[in-house]
């Protein structure tokens, strides 16, 4: 749930099929499906996006999400990762 909690503020994203969509993150769910507003794409490259203002993207199709470093506290992220690792460690060890 770490990344679900984390993605509440952020922007700018790139899809797996090399389509890049930039927008304001409006909403996110547990599968990391996302809704973007103020959508901008390279219209010359992807003319089918020309009239799209807001979009829902299935999480599984996402490769990267580029983030604005100024809106992220990386120390906080690292601490949250360690805490999540603590909480889930020992769950799935085989043969020990």
């Amino acid at each position: 749930m770490l990344f679900f909690s984390f993605f509440k503020t952020l922007v700018d994203q790139e899809l797996k099929n090399d389509v890049k969509i930039t927008g304001t993150l409006r909403s996110i769910d547990q599968y990391l499906n996302i809704k973007l507003d103020n959508v901008q794409t390279d219209v010359a490259k992807y003319p089918h996006f020309v009239a799209v203002r807001s979009v829902f993207i299935r999480g599984s199709t996402i490769r990267y999400i580029h983030l604005n470093p100024n809106s992220v506290d990386t120390n906080l992220l690292q601490d949250a990762s360690r805490r999540e690792a603590m909480a889930s460690s020992g769950d799935k060890i085989v043969g020990r």
């Binding site: 990344f3 996402i62 490769r63 990267y64 999400i65 990386t74």
Partner: peptide, 11 residues
Amino acid sequence: KSELVFVRGDS
């Protein structure tokens, strides 16, 4: 290059 990037685990 990217200053900060989230990479989805399935890739």
